[in-house]
Design a protein around this nucleic acid. Sequence first.
RNA 1: GGCGCAUUCGUCUAGAGGCCCAGGACGCCUCCCUUUCAAGGAGGAGAUCAGGGGUUCGAAUCCCCUAUGCGCUACCA
Length: 507
Amino acid sequence: MSEEKHEMSGPVRTRFAPSPTGFLHVGGVRTAMFSWLLAQRFGGEFLLRVEDTDQKRFVEGAEQNMMESLRWVGIAWAEGPDVGGPHAPYRQSERLPIYQRYAEQLVAQGDAYQSWTSPAELTAEREAAAAAHQPPPRRDRWRNASPEQVAAQEATGQRFVIRLKLPEEGSVVFYDLVKKDTITFDYSGQDDIVILKSDGFPTYHLAATVDDHLMGITHVMRAEEWLASTPKHLFIYQSLGWQPPAFAHVPNILRPDGRGKMSKRDGDASTEQFWTKGYLPEAMFNYLALQGWSYDDHTEIMTVAEISQRFSLERVQPSPARWNLEKLNWMNSQYINHVLTLDDLARRSLPFMQNGGYLKDAVEGDEEYLYYRAALELIKDRLKLLGEAPDLLSYFFADRLQYDTALLLGKGITAEQVATVLDHTIHLLQSDQYAAWHLSDRETGPEANLRGLAAELGVKVGSVFMPIRVAITGRSQSPGLFETAEVLGKERTLFRLREALHQVQGQ
RNA sequence: GGCGCAUUCGUCUAGAGGCCCAGGACGCCUCCCUUUCAAGGAGGAGAUCAGGGGUUCGAAUCCCCUAUGCGCUACCA
């Protein structure tokens, strides 16, 4: 077994622990995905924990939104705030006494201390240090307060915070599964971070560490910004006598311009907008997996099951990747055209059609639905997002097409000739042969006949087909003419041709 | 300012001392197909492997330095 599971006994347990401060952005989904994939790969367990320890930044509904985003791409958890589990509760705001107990223990052991330094004093000190181009103060002046001073201060009843009391010297070394290397930090450069705030809530550092241990997390996978605080977490594990988990810091996804990581301030990064636009969860999963992980030198399209089987931290890139929407779009159209069956595509596009005002009462399998499905087949190769379906299919459902007459009168053909073409086509389709024709049959269908007409009129074949195209679709771009006519049906096609003829004659 | 991490085509990546004067994908360009637009097929441009030093018979791959980028440096996560 690889390094990823070294020294581990029992099942791999991973977690995703978002903070409910807004929507889940795609970088967050990717981090959650890697965590989930590691558990999947080793037949382990994955859980969801909500880190709502900052009351000021709490956003109503964010938790629900994040869970929806995760479910959308196919990430499921066996334990979590919504489903419970053996280590419930999974919301940190409901676990306050636990953190307080450990914070007190650390103070009692001398590994943490109480501080009454006010936030105003702290910022003043930091600003002064910054102005002098000096590093900010790492220690708090209460660090070395005498028991008498502390007791006296405590008697005043003023609120305090608890800070970690990091060693004066020495260093921490740990191995990172993504960096594939050992990372060293000197204690001297580390802050005595706050682990318990004055409102009684823990900070991330205490809460995450305590919960990861209590919940049996074997592999802590998280975004790279946590790398720098890992030594503090390790100090907590050590002070509490706990075996630390393995760490894997996954690189951030950078904004398309490469300037900075994706964040909640980038509206384009919100996961939910991808489903509302019509990205397929499988495509999103596939794309995101490849953003920082690869299987080999050429495989790109993989199912979730394949990725789960093939995932490996060894192949996770240690450097950040930029968000590439073009590639996601390509991936999505690959799934639309080469992975989904037509039935599946029709089923999934239906809500978007209904949203666009079509097929309100359609029931899968009924006549209208079948018509829609046939039309969808014609346009799917130019469908990149399901949300584009209503526009791409609009002329299949319009009662009367609206278009500029100029569109009918193309180059290289006169108005009279256009009228002739339309009239000829109408008669052609009206003839008894229509029922027998497979319109798209080039040899025996109307195509051969119309090509003959073009020769007769002395115009290009394209000049003959274009007015017909505009007549039946209202556009100069469409799928194959005869396939389209076939789906539209004789009645609708003839009606549109006659309308176009009137329009030309009315000129 | 300090500390940490990273650095292969524009972008995502393959590459773990000779198979690499660097392979694949997206995007871009050309051609083919063709009634339009796509899709598809075939090609092409595009990376002195961030730069500089080493180590070695031999380095994209190992070591060092520099540069640049990103991250952290909150009683936010």
